[in-house]
Nucleic acid binder design. Sequence first.
DNA 1: CAGTGATCATCA
DNA 2: TGATGATCACTG
Length: 226
Amino acid sequence: MIPAPTTEQELLDRAYALAGFTLGELASQRDIACPADLRREKGWVGMLLENCLGATAGSKPEQDFQDLGIELKSIPISHSGKPLETTFVCVAPLTGVHGLTWESSHIRNKLSKVLWVPVEGEREIPVSERRVGMPLIWQPSQEEEKQLKADWEELMEFIVLGKIHEISAKHGEFMQLRPKAANSKVKTEAYGANGQPIKTLPRGFYLRTQFTARILARHFLLSDSE
DNA sequence: CAGTGATCATCA
DNA sequence: TGATGATCACTG
C-alpha cells in the first residue's frame, strides 16, 4: 500500500510521475492483474490510479483525498485528447431533499477540487497498452460553478416535485441525471407526484463530455477542433 | 441495498 | 458517431 499523500503537491508530484506509463506497466508495478478489456471491470482504471496515488480505497461518499479536499477522477480520452465518456460524479439524493441547496450539496463538495488524470481510452488500444496522460488539478471557475448550479437546480426540482420519471439524460446542459445501478431492476425510494413514497431506479449525476472537454482544453490550451 | 470505481451496448 | 439508458465488480 502506498501511504496517502499529505500535501496537494505530493499528490500532484505522484500523479505527474505516472504520466507516460502504460496501464500495464503501472499494474505490474503494483502487482495487479490487467484485464484484456473493461467489459467486466469498468472501474478498473480508476481503482488502479487510486492504488498508485495512495487513495484510500472504499465506498465512502466522500472525496478520495478528504484531508486535502481533493477528488480523483480518471477520464478516458480519444486520440485527439477529448473525453470519450461522460464522468460520473455521485448518486443523486432522491429523498430528504427538503431545504437542500447547491451550496450544501454533496456534488458541489465533490467537484470543489478535482485531480483529473487523462488515460487513453480508445477501445482499439489494448488496456495494458493505454498510456496515462498529464494530470491536472481543477477548481470550477465562477462560470463553471454557475452552470453546474443551474443544472443541479433544474434536475433537483424534478426530484422535489416527485417528477423523477419525467427526467431523462437530455435534461441539464452540462450535467445530466442518468441511471446508476447494477441493472434496471434495482430500486430505491423517491417521491411520487403526490409526495407519497415510490420506488425508482437510482440515479447519478454525470458531467457531459462537452463540459469536461473544456476543462481539459482550457488547461492544455487545445483547440476545440482537435 | 447504497455507494465506490466507471464503461458498455444500442439506437437515432 | 454521439448520446442515452443499461450494466459490471466490489465493499460496508
